[in-house]
């Protein structure tokens, strides 16, 4: 599924989608950035509640297809701007990390 298609589904919303045509191949959940870099795979959707600027660097370096902010977390405008410039897709949801994973498991079948 493409990132921009996920952003259209109820429970999810686009924050910025500079590369919305990227495919989601898997899912990773984590808030400790080094764990995410060590374990997330390229093209995963990354679910987190962290919203500082380092998230954008980690997303870029680990090459995930999008960052999904769970629990209604919204990053600051400056971070959204950085993500847009660096080609990092950001999606929001009010679901918990678990709820997001369950939903993705249904959608990505």
């Amino acid at each position: 599924m493409k990132v921009k298609e996920l952003a259209q589904i109820s429970d999810f919303g686009a924050i910025t989608l500079p590369e919305g045509d990227r495919d989601i191949e898997g899912v990773y959940i984590g808030d400790l950035l080094s764990w995410v870099m060590g374990r997330a795979r390229a093209d995963d959707a990354w679910i987190t509640i962290m919203s500082n600027v380092n998230v954008i660097a980690v997303a870029s370096l680990s090459d995930v297809s999008c960052v999904i902010f769970a629990e209604g977390v919204m990053p600051e405008d400056s971070i959204v701007e950085t993500a847009t410039k660096k080609g990092i897709n950001l999606i929001s949801t009010s679901l918990s990390a678990y709820g997001t994973a369950v939903r993705l498991s249904e959608i990505l079948k």
Binding site: D31, L32, L33, S34, W35, M37, G38, M50, N52, N54, V55
Partner: peptide, 16 residues
């Protein structure tokens, strides 16, 4: 609190 300091830095460097 910024999401670092998990003790994964050097192990990640070795792993990759």
């Amino acid at each position: 609190s910024l999401g670092f300091g998990a003790g994964m830095g050097l192990p990640n460097m070795k792993r990759h």
